[in-house]
């Protein structure tokens, strides 16, 4: 009897684990869906000017070829010089450098956004690995930049951190949740501070905003699944509860301090190394 009991319980807990994973993935997808419109905007800007610059480049090349083609056909050097003046050669020459540099910058930005999206959508990456938390934060900032830049100035107050044993894509998701929440809490234009510190065998990560704060009666409920104060369609009510689960899975702690009208600070502490006994089978 106890034997079947055990296997049933094991089966149930395996199913629960599976359901949790699915929930995590769907929350991630929902969050990404919300961000997608913003990301499109973020990509359309650089694509916009790179595309425009290519059209200008085409005009410049047409002009330059007019000059080089004339080398064979022109009667005199004076003719060539007059074409050169005509096409505003000096301007083209100086502007080409800027055109290329700005376009390269645009492509680089698109590349970064795509790479960040990819970092985010990893599904199978479930193993604990040594990773650089700051790198994860930067990736996340790339993804949510569009949500943030019209709402707040982002201040990075980073300490020296060792690589920590974690599932970075999941921590990214936690950071994303906190950043997006922070932006939503700000009315008008505010400030979001991301702070990192090492504290012995722990690392501390804080995300602080100067937004409207969380009402005291909500403070005890924010980690509950499906609890949200956002309007329908804006939030799933799962972000913080899943974040909490992720941090728990990392044997860390997450707590919150908030003063209505002044702002909110989420504080996460994570062990640098995962305890050996807690390692996944």
């Amino acid at each position: 009897m106890p034997h079947t009991d055990m296997s049933e319980r094991e089966q149930l807990s395996a199913r629960l684990e599976q359901a949790n994973r699915q929930l995590l993935q769907s929350e991630k997808m929902a969050a990404i869906g919300q961000l997608a419109a913003g990301v499109a905007h973020e990509i359309n800007n650089p694509v916009g000017y790179v595309y425009s610059n290519l059209q200008s480049l085409e005009t410049y090349l047409g002009d330059l070829f007019r000059l080089t083609d004339a080398i064979d056909s022109a009667d005199s050097v004076a003719d060539l010089q007059s074409i050169k003046r005509n096409i505003d050669y000096d301007f083209i020459r100086t502007d080409l450098g800027d055109l290329l540099a700005e376009s390269r910058e645009g492509i680089e930005r698109v590349r970064k956004i795509i790479a960040a999206m990819k970092d985010f959508s990893y599904v199978e990456d479930e193993a604990f690995k040594l990773a650089n938390l700051h790198q994860g934060i930067e990736t996340t900032l790339n993804v949510v930049n569009n949500e943030l830049k019209y709402k707040a100035e982002v201040v990075r107050d980073f300490g020296d951190l060792p690589d920590i044993e974690c599932i970075l894509s999941q921590l990214n998701q936690v950071v994303m949740n906190l950043l997006v929440n922070a932006a939503h809490a700000i009315e008008g234009f505010g400030r979001i501070t991301i702070r990192t510190r090492q504290d012995n065998d722990q690392v501390i990560l804080e995300v602080e905003d100067n937004g409207k704060g969380i009402a005291e009666e909500h403070l005890t409920r924010i980690f509950e699944p499906f609890f949200t104060t956002k309007p329908v369609g804006k939030g799933t009510g799962l972000g913080l509860s899943l974040s909490f689960n992720i941090i728990e899975k990392h044997n860390g702690r997450m707590d919150v301090h908030s003063t209505p009208g002044q702002g909110t600070c989420f504080r996460i502490s994570l062990p640098v190394r995962q305890p050996a006994t807690e390692d996944k089978p």
């Binding site: 800007n45 916009g48 000017y49 790179v50 645009g106």
Partner: peptide
């Protein structure tokens, strides 16, 4: 708000 957009437009409209 993006300077690169402005210079791309200026470039394109210069003629």
């Amino acid at each position: 708000d993006e300077a690169n957009i402005l210079s791309a437009l200026k470039r394109l409209l210069r003629p």
